[in-house]
């Protein structure tokens, strides 16, 4: 056999094995979600579902306020992402385009968030939220996440590379600075905004630690938290199939977004590593 074919066969085999291993847990989840509980806990039962209990999925949905948790997650992730993009774009633009006293110091302050991992400061942040009476509120979930060192850094890099002549031409035509920002430069940033936005949105959507310290009532929790609560309830009732149904419910919407926005996600991951 020619060498190139051997080479291709090896590459295909290794890649196929990797894809199978990576996807297997998700397939297993889907199969387990529609099994009867008896089939799951019997170590001798066949691995493939013998009966398909599609009703497990609505059952799981009905046993906990998933609709509310999804609504909270949408509000949190959408508002936090919009805030991060807006604040990051404004600050990045100002640091790139304007010369003003204290610029270096303010830029360092804006980026210091990158050096202070949120995870290290959860205890004092929770205390600040308590002092503000922001625990178990939407503003408590959203506002502390808005400052984005990454967003500021990336937008500054972007606007530093944008052509200066565009703004100067508009200035000669008498456009205000605000208008130059909004009508000349902000539209240029649209592709970068999309890539960064999808990554930030997914990060906010999947954020578990922050909601865990900011909200603890059933009414205010997000999907990830609700799912963890649901698991402990269903484990005591040994309803393992419903746990997998609930995981399926939590995963499918994100999976659809991920497949649809694959290209932007890949671009965003690369941006996020500040490379």
């Amino acid at each position: 056999m020619p060498r190139i074919l051997v080479h291709r066969a090896v590459v295909y085999t290794l890649l196929a094995a990797a894809v199978l291993i990576v996807m297997f847990p998700l397939v297993w989840m889907a199969l387990t979600a529609v099994k009867s509980n008896g089939q799951i806990i019997n170590p001798a039962a066949p691995l493939w579902p013998t009966e398909w209990h599609w009703s497990n999925i609505p059952d799981a949905w009905g046993k906990a306020p998933f609709a509310r948790w999804f609504a909270n997650t949408v509000v949190f992730a959408a508002a936090a992402t919009a805030g991060q993009l807006a604040a990051g774009m404004l600050a990045g633009y100002a640091f790139a385009m304007f010369d003003f006293p204290g610029r270096r110091l303010l830029f360092l302050l804006a980026l210091s968030g990158l050096m202070i991992p949120f995870s290290a400061i959860i205890v004092p942040v929770a205390q600040i939220l308590g002092d503000l009476h922001w625990l178990n509120t939407y503003q408590g979930l959203i506002v502390p996440n808005i400052a984005s060192g990454l967003g500021t850094f990336l937008f500054r890099q972007f606007f530093l590379g944008a052509p200066r002549q565009l703004g100067e031409a508009a200035r000669i035509d008498g456009a205000s600075e605000l208008r130059i920002f909004w009508q000349v430069y902000a539209p240029l940033a649209r592709p970068a905004t999309a890539a960064l936005g999808i990554i930030l949105f997914l990060q906010n959507w999947n954020n578990f630690l922050f909601p865990l310290i900011a909200v603890n009532t059933t009414k205010m929790q997000v999907v990830s938290q609700g799912l963890a609560v649901f698991q402990s309830q269903m484990t005591t009732q040994t309803q393992y199939n419903l746990i997998m149904s609930a995981s399926l419910i939590a995963i499918v919407p994100v999976l659809l977004v991920a497949v649809a926005a694959q290209r932007h996600i890949v671009e965003g991951i690369t941006l996020g590593a500040v490379d």
């Binding site: 847990p25 998700l26 938290q225 799912l227 995981s247 399926l248 995963i251």
Partner: peptide, 9 residues
């Protein structure tokens, strides 16, 4: 996808 959900798997 949410890590809580995949950790449950």
């Amino acid at each position: 996808v949410p890590a809580v959900a995949t950790a449950l798997i």
